[in-house]
Design a binder for these strands. Structure first.
Length: 125
DNA sequence: TTGTGTTTTATTGCCTCC
DNA sequence: GGAGGCAATAAAACACAA
């Protein structure tokens, strides 16, 4: 299924950007740590194996940073993801999920945008 | 307060690339 | 074969009218 998705390969170029320039997170580690505490405080049911889908919303701070990174780079390389996850006190997986979902949202938004435009311009192209 | 619709996070399954 | 991508979907959290 990468046929369609990889068409936005221009985004892939950002893999070569320096980690810091992409992540661009200043020292927010304290706040991030706070957030991290929030994350793990209750998930102590000892069901790591079981899909304990305890959904926690990310903090405003985390989302702000994720958004700002996403603006510059919609695809993160492994190192960048690890760094960002550390900075924000999140799990690497969570960062991956977030970017995945964010890309999907962006795509849908673009699609809706185009559709609205074409409707305004008289329907079918 | 609660029933319902929307948004956000997480999982699963399949595909491609190295 | 493993890692990471997307699409589809589930489920929790949130927003809001009645």
């Amino acid at each position: 299924m990468d046929n369609g998705s990889q068409q936005e390969s221009s985004d892939l170029h950002v893999h070569h950007l320096p980690i810091v320039s992409v992540i661009g997170v200043e020292d927010h580690t304290e706040e991030a740590d706070d957030a991290a505490v929030d994350y793990h405080d209750d998930g102590s049911e000892g069901q790591d194996e079981v899909s304990n889908k305890r959904m926690k919303r990310h903090t405003d701070d985390q989302i702000k940073h994720l958004e700002s990174v996403f603006e510059r780079c919609t695809y993160l390389g492994g190192n960048q993801r690890v760094e960002l996850a550390k900075k924000l006190g999140m799990e690497e997986r969570q960062v991956k999920f977030w970017f995945q979902n964010r890309r999907t949202r962006k795509k849908v938004a673009t699609w809706v945008d185009k559709r609205q435009l074409s409707v305004r311009n008289g329907g079918s192209p």
